[in-house]
């Protein structure tokens, strides 16, 4: 959290709507540990990361939904299935990511 707090403070000062994604559980060789965070604004800005770049795109989309609904979500990302178009972790492992609205208008 501390590493992305300066960006969050800056975005708050600029009146952005912000969602926060946190890795809350990992299994296997997860790319980033429990506690890794990524903040996303409704306007499309991003800070931090929850994986080595594998699922950030999906988390970004989910963060937009969370900001829209105001309702947090817990999602699990697993090993990518090459046969499917689903997002996944190329390095293996499973991560649970909790996405919540941090700053939301009205």
């Amino acid at each position: 959290m501390r590493d992305i707090l300066p960006e969050i403070e800056q975005w708050m000062a600029e009146g952005e709507e912000i969602a926060l994604a946190t890795v809350v559980r990992t299994a296997g060789s997860a790319p980033r540990p429990v506690g890794a965070k990524m903040a996303v604004t409704r306007s499309g800005r991003m800070a931090g990361s929850v994986s080595g770049g594998c699922v950030e795109g999906a988390v970004f989309e989910l963060a937009q939904q969370v900001l829209e609904s105001g309702r947090p979500q817990l999602v699990q990302y697993g090993i990518s299935d090459e046969m499917a178009w689903d997002v996944g972790l190329s390095c293996g492992g499973i991560i649970d990511v909790f996405v919540e609205p941090l700053v939301r208008r009205g």
């Binding site: 309702r71 947090p72 909790f98 919540e100």
Partner: peptide, 10 residues
């Protein structure tokens, strides 16, 4: 502490 599974979620 954050409730990440169960209600009230978050």
């Amino acid at each position: 502490a954050t409730l990440v599974r169960g209600e009230p979620l978050g």
